[in-house]
Simulated scan of single mutants.
Amino acid sequence: MRKRNQMSLLLMCVLLIVIAGCGGNKNAQATDPSNQPADKTTDVNSTEPKKLRDIKVVLDWTPNTNHTGLYVAQDQGYYEAEGLNVEIIQPGEGGADTMVASGAVPFGISYQEGVTQARTQDVPLVSIAAVIQHNTSGFAAPIERNIKSPTDFEGKTYGGWGSPVEEAVMSSIMEKEKGDVKKVKIINMGDADFFTAVKRDIDFAWIFYAWTGIEAELRKQPLDMLYVKDYAPELDYYTPVIVTNEKQIKDDPELVRAFLKATAKGYQLAIDNPEEAASILSKAVPELDKDLVLASQKWLSPRYTDDAPRWGEQKKEVWQGYTDWMLNHKLLDKKIDINQAYTNDFLAN
């Protein structure tokens, strides 16, 4: 969540890359195996194994249970079955959206918010799957702060990352409860984690419950959690999502289809067997707390698909509702074509 404060600047940098044309990308295609056409299988009489196509997928942040399906697909050979050798990487200085939009990597993890902002600046990001069906984020506070409703934000100190989205979201849910966001002290808590910050100088912060909320449970530090979607349906947006760019879709739709087919299998295993999926993630990223991974996975696994007919499904009304909300709160410079921002075309039936 904290990296979103850099979103606008990063998107402007991407826009300059995109405006400059795809000439740089063409040169990259000649040398980057991630952009090469998939190798053909060898002759049936040949003893040589099928060559795999090397590609990368970039995360939005450090590895966590939002990403489990990727690691499962990698571990279980689902990518290999589709002719792919997938490397999961963490974002560089430019961020995941920049890397995907510029063609440096074909796939990445992003947020509906980031894709929407990118589209207003003609950055060609496209969401191809929703990792989780409903927004699991909200404002959290230690129970001793006695924050039971949005009106209780008044007179309290909020620790954020300096994005205008934060105050707009807070204002939306407070207004519905007759609260006044101007009575909230908003500070930037920098790189401090939630648990450090609430011991120091803040009362509440915006978290994803599947990770920070579960960690609070394990620490036996109970929280009051106000999910934003419970107060404003238009804030029940997709976060996170898997993204690619328009050029990737145009030039190699079969790669997009193959990558999502294998990824969907990874998330399905995580849905059906969270314990096994947690073990796979812990093995791939041993520095993660195993108890946190397991508890988080058990909480999150049923929420990957929830009430959707299949994993990854995205609804137009969700994209339209959040876009309209952003426009109404002057967080977007112009309207976007919703149909260009997302697609379900590459999901398995």
Rank of each mutant, 00 (worst) to 15 (best):
Y231K: 03
D307V: 15
A210K: 09
P240T: 06
V169N: 02
N85K: 09
N344F: 00
L10A: 09
A341Q: 12
I88E: 10
Q340M: 14
A81Q: 10
D289R: 04
D191F: 04
N64C: 15
D236C: 00
Y238C: 05
Q297V: 06
Y238I: 02
W206D: 13
W206Y: 12
W161H: 13
N35L: 13
N188P: 08
K185V: 12
L223D: 08
H134N: 08
D337G: 09
A341W: 09
T157A: 00
E93I: 03
E276D: 06
E80P: 08
D39M: 07
D60P: 09
V115W: 13
N64M: 14
V318R: 05
N45S: 15
V198P: 03
K316I: 11
I132M: 12
R2V: 10
G312K: 05
Y71P: 12
N27Q: 08
N245H: 00
L52V: 09
R257D: 12
F346N: 04
A81N: 11
Y237M: 09
L223S: 13
L327N: 11
P253K: 12
I202K: 00
D230G: 02
N64H: 15
L10K: 12
A141D: 01
P33G: 01
D289W: 00
K40V: 15
P233Y: 03
Y304N: 10
I202L: 01
E82P: 12
K182N: 14
D43F: 15
R2Y: 07
S102M: 06
V100S: 03
Q268N: 15
V57N: 07
D230T: 01
N5T: 12
I186D: 07
L223V: 05
V14Q: 07
F259T: 09
K51C: 04
P124Q: 04
W299N: 02
A168I: 05
A38S: 14
T151M: 06
Y238F: 09
N25I: 08
Q117D: 11
Q268P: 10
D224S: 11
I271S: 01
D43W: 14
K176R: 11
M99E: 11
G162I: 09
K56Y: 05
L300I: 08
D324L: 00
R119Q: 05
N146E: 11
F208K: 14
Q297S: 14
V115L: 06
Y237T: 05
N85M: 15
T244N: 00
G83C: 13
V44H: 14
V293P: 08
S110I: 05
G69R: 12
N339Q: 09
N344D: 02
V14D: 06
Q314D: 04
W211P: 10
L255Y: 04
S171A: 04
W211N: 11
T136I: 15
T196S: 13
S8H: 06
K3P: 04
V18H: 12
P63V: 13
W299D: 08
A277Y: 14
K334A: 14
G21R: 05
